[in-house]
């Protein structure tokens, strides 16, 4: 318990969390602080490029081993099955319609790459190493949840458009995934030499850009919450806190079964606990326009994202440390 408080305190007082809190609170206070859309997207591209490249470079020279394959498989299975748990939880806890519940469930099977980036930064601050291939695991967890949720929706709504070829292409080739995986493979090919060539650009400014980006995410999350008053019930908010805990627990079980080391275990927990707010909302708008975006965006970005960032990550680090050992 002492370690949890100490970690939580360190986490809450880290610049990245404080900048997120600043953005969130000034948005609630209705400040006019704003990031132009192009700058927000630029920072997002930079972070994906940097985390992908560093992950690939750290893996170069190691080759493909069984644990890498098992980790990728675990990511796919977790992403495909977590929406079913989320759907059942939502139907038990809330009065949400089946269509809205399935759309929300898709978000909770998929991942938040920003939460992943924040968690990996916090692990670095704690001196806990993790496997570079966790970036690839993150990428594999984006799409299966969408397919599971669309299957759930097709059972409930016969008019649902479902998954056509164009939507599948958009999901698999969405810009974030392409950049993350592309940078990962370039990092893998060029290795340590490639990393040292561009290190001044992707290493030194990384945390500063992450702080600015989280300031923007705080603004977006805070404003989303303000604009969604009445869209989500108290029970839905409870789901937004319980589901990441359930996801992290299942992620931990998978990590233990395949024998992941501490840092990678924490990241698999974070990936299982996080909810998408970039790729999945876009897919849901195309395939299931009947689902209310105010519900799924408020829950994933306004509830679960701040929860994971402030409470979840230190909690997952503490639990993983207690179970696996430092």
């Amino acid at each position: 318990m002492e370690q949890l408080f100490s970690l939580a305190q360190q986490n809450l007082l880290s610049p990245i969390i404080l900048f997120f809190a600043l953005g969130f609170s000034v948005a609630i206070a209705k400040s006019d602080l704003n990031f132009p859309e192009a700058i927000a997207k630029g920072m997002s591209l930079y972070l994906l490029f940097a985390i992908g490249f560093k992950g690939g470079a750290s893996l170069s020279g190691y080759g493909i081993d069984l644990q890498l394959i098992l980790s990728l498989l675990s990511g796919i299975i977790l992403s495909a099955t977590l929406p079913f748990l989320a759907f059942v939880l939502l139907r038990i806890l809330t009065k949400m319609s089946a269509i809205d519940a399935a759309a929300v469930a898709a978000h909770y099977g998929s991942i938040s790459i920003v939460t992943f980036v924040a968690a990996s930064s916090i692990l670095e601050i704690q001196g806990i190493s993790y496997d570079g291939y966790m970036v690839a695991v993150a990428a594999t967890m984006e799409a299966p949840a969408i397919i599971s949720a669309l299957w759930l929706i097709s059972r409930k709504n016969k008019a649902s458009k479902g998954l056509d070829g164009e939507l599948m292409r958009e999901i698999l080739l969405n810009g974030s995934i392409v950049l993350l995986i592309g940078s990962f493979f370039i990092g893998l090919i060029t290795g340590k030499d490639g990393l040292s060539e561009i290190s001044p650009f992707i290493s030194a400014p990384f945390k500063g850009v992450l702080c600015l980006f989280l300031l923007d995410m705080g603004l977006v999350a805070g404003r989303g919450l303000m604009n969604a008053k009445g869209a989500v019930s108290g029970r839905s908010v409870l789901f937004g806190v319980l589901m990441p805990l359930a996801g992290a627990t299942i992620g931990l079980i998978f990590a233990l079964v395949i024998g992941l080391p501490l840092g990678s275990t924490v990241l698999l927990m974070v990936l299982s606990a996080s909810a998408s707010y970039i790729a999945v909302p876009a897919a849901m708008r195309v395939a299931v326009p009947e689902a209310n975006p105010a519900i799924y965006l408020t829950l994933s970005l306004g509830v679960t994202f701040p929860f994971n960032l402030t409470v979840g990550i230190p909690l997952y680090v503490t639990i993983a440390t207690a179970v696996i050992g430092a």
């Binding site: 990031f35 997002s44 969604a228 970039i278 909302p281 965006l297």
Partner: peptide, 14 residues
Amino acid sequence: SGHWSREGQISRAQ
């Protein structure tokens, strides 16, 4: 659906 703005957004859904 209420007020919305592109400022700061990174999602294609909005």
